[in-house]
Design a protein around this nucleic acid. Structure first.
Length: 429
RNA sequence: GGUCCCGUCGUCUAGUGGCCUAGGAUAUCGGGCUCUCAUCCCGGCGACAGGGGUUCGAAUCCCCUCGGGACCA
C-alpha cells in the first residue's frame, strides 16, 4: 500500500512551491490508489500560527487536494520521545552536554537511491555526529521527520530537493532504528525570474492570492503539474487526467522558473472549458465585489442569460476579474464608457434609425436583428462600421467584444434601448 | 568555504546513440477572418553553456571548464 505525505510548517501561507510538492504527492497517491497524508509540522512554536494552518488547509481545499489522514506534529511528542530513547537504548545515540547526539559511522558511505536523481553517494566521514534532541528537550528536524515518517509507515518521501543533503542523515536513523527505508524522490525547486529560490520578493507566491486574482484552481493545478512534469506535447490537463497520467518517471530533474505568462493562457483555456453554470458561480463573487451589481440583482437574473453571458464573453478573458468586468453589462447598472462618444449629425440620425429598428425586431435574436439592421443600413446607404463602434460603446462600454448582434441579444432589448436612448438624449437629439 | 544537485528557444518542455537540417506550448512579431477585440487558422523569430574524448554516428555516454541553485558552516 502506497503512503505519502505533505508536511508543511505553518509559518506562513501556502506558496506555489509547497503547493507543487503537495500536488505531486497527491497525484502520486491518487494515481496508485494510495493514501495521502497531511502532516502539519508545527513544532517550531515561535513561528507556527493557527492562522497559517487554517490558510494552508484552505489553500489545499481550494486546489482540490483532499487528504486521507491528518496529523499535527506537536501532538506526537511521545512518539518522538520513544524513538529517540530507542536510539539511545540501541547505543546509536549518546548524551553529551545536555543534548542527545546521533552516532554517525566514521567510515563508509551512505547512498541515497533517489527515484529522480539516481544514486547519490555521501561520505559518512563528512556527516559527523549530529544532535537529535536539544538540551531544552526539543527534537531536531532531521530526527522528527524520520520518527514520523517511520511511525506513519510512509512508503515514498516526495519533497523538494533542498532536503537532499539531509537525506543521508535520515537514512542512517532509519537504519539505526531498523525500520524499512522509504523510497525517496527529490523534486527540483521552483525558481524566480532571477533564478534564485522562489520567494515573496518575486511577487505573488501565495496560492490563495491567485484565487483572489481570479484564477481557477484547475488552471493552477495544471500549471504547477507542468512545472517539472510532462506528458508528451500535451499542455492542457484536467485534474482527472493528471491523476490518470501522472508518474514520477516523467518528472524532470532541473529547476523551473515560475513564469506567469503561461498561467494566464492556461487560465483562459480552463475558463473556456468550464461548465457555463459552474463558471457563473465562480465569477459571481468577483462581479459582486466590483460593487455595482448587488446580490439581489444577481439572484433575480435569469440563470440561462448568465450562462449565455459567460460562454459568449469568456473568450477574451484571462481571469475571472476580466470576466466579471464585462458581465456587468448584463445588469441595469451604469456602464463605464472607455471613451467619450462624439456624435455628428449623420450618426445621430443613424442611431435614431437603429433604435426604431430594434424596437420592432421580432424575435430579438442575433439573426433577426442582424437582418433588420443590415436592411436598414442598406436602405440608407450606410455601412455597419458607421454605427457599430458607437453602438458598442453605448451598450457595452467598449469597442472590443463579441459580435455586435450577439451583444444586442445578450444584453436584451430593454437594456439596449434604454442605453441607446440615454446616449441620444445626452447628445440632445 | 565544504558537500550535493542542475544546465535544450526569453519561459515551460519533448528528446533515454541514428527517426533531430532538434518537436510542441507560451511569449513576441506578421498575415487571414470580423463591425471591433478576442477566439481560431497560417506563418516568422528563437535553444542542445563551452572544450575535449568514446563511437561509423552524440542534445543523448565519459572527463574538464564555466554558469546557476540548494544545504551546511
Amino acid at each position: 500500500m502506497i503512503r505519502v505525505r505533505f508536511a508543511p510548517s505553518p509559518t506562513g501561507y501556502l506558496h506555489v512551491g509547497g503547493a507543487r510538492t503537495a500536488l505531486f504527492n497527491w497525484l502520486f497517491a491518487r494515481h496508485l490508489n494510495g493514501t495521502f497524508i497531511l502532516r502539519i509540522e508545527d513544532t517550531d512554536q515561535e513561528r507556527s500560527t493557527e492562522e497559517s494552518i487554517e490558510q494552508i488547509l484552505e489553500a489545499m481545499r481550494w486546489l482540490g487536494l483532499d487528504w486521507d489522514e491528518y496529523y499535527r506534529q506537536t501532538a506526537r511528542r511521545s512518539v518522538h520521545q520513544q524513538l529517540a530513547q530507542e536510539l539511545v537504548d540501541r547505543g546509536c545515540a549518546y548524551m553529551h552536554a545536555g543534548a542527545w547526539w546521533f552516532r554517525v559511522p566514521k567510515e563508509g558511505e551512505t547512498i541515497v537511491h533517489d527515484e529522480l536523481l539516481g544514486d547519490v553517494p555521501f561520505q559518512n566521514a563528512q556527516l559527523k555526529d549530529f544532535v537529535i534532541r536539544r538540551s531544552d528537550g526539543s527534537f531536531v528536524y532531521n530526527f522528527v521527520v524520520v520518527a514520523d515518517d517511520a511511525d506513519m509507515r510512509i512508503t515514498h518521501v516526495i519533497r523538494g530537493d533542498d532536503h537532499l543533503n539531509n537525506t543521508p542523515k535520515q537514512i542512517l536513523i532509519y537504519e539505526a532504528l531498523e525500520r524499512p527505508l522509504p523510497h525517496f524522490a527529490h523534486l527540483p525547486l521552483i525558481l524566480g525570474p532571477d533564478r534564485t529560490r522562489l520567494s515573496k520578493r518575486h511577487g505573488v507566491t501565495s496560492v490563495l492570492e491567485y484565487r483572489r486574482r481570479g484564477f481557477l484552481s484547475e488552471a493552477i493545478v495544471n500549471f504547477l503539474a507542468r512545472l517539472g512534469w510532462s506528458h508528451g506535447d500535451q499542455e492542457f490537463f484536467t485534474r482527472d487526467e493528471l491523476i490518470e497520467l501522472f508518474s514520477l518517471e516523467n518528472v524532470g530533474s532541473s529547476a523551473a522558473i515560475f513564469d506567469e505568462a503561461k498561467l494566464f493562457w492556461l487560465n483562459q483555456q480552463h475558463m473556456k472549458a468550464a461548465d457555463p453554470e459552474e463558471l457563473c458561480e465562480l465569477v459571481k463573487p468577483f462581479v459582486l465585489e466590483k460593487g455595482l451589481v448587488t446580490q439581489a440583482m444577481w439572484e433575480k437574473a435569469n440563470p440561462e442569460r448568465l450562462s449565455h453571458g459567460v460562454t459568449l464573453l469568456r473568450h477574451r478573458c484571462k481571469t475571472l476579474h476580466d470576466l466579471a468586468d464585462v458581465m456587468t453589462i448584463l445588469f441595469p447598472v451604469p456602464i463605464e464608457h472607455e471613451k467619450e462618444i462624439h456624435l455628428d449629425e449623420e450618426e445621430k440620425t443613424l442611431i435614431g434609425a437603429l433604435i426604431e429598428t430594434l424596437e420592432r425586431v421580432e424575435p430579438f435574436t442575433p439573426q433577426a436583428s442582424e437582418e433588420a439592421i443590415r436592411d436598414m443600413l442598406a436602405a440608407r446607404g450606410a455601412k455597419l462600421r458607421d454605427v457599430a463602434p458607437t453602438c458598442r460603446i453605448a451598450i457595452a462600454g467598449r469597442k472590443a467584444g463579441p459580435g455586435l448582434f450577439d451583444i444586442l441579444s445578450l444584453v436584451g432589448r430593454g437594456l439596449v434601448l434604454s442605453r441607446l436612448r440615454a446616449l441620444v438624449k445626452e447628445r440632445g437629439v
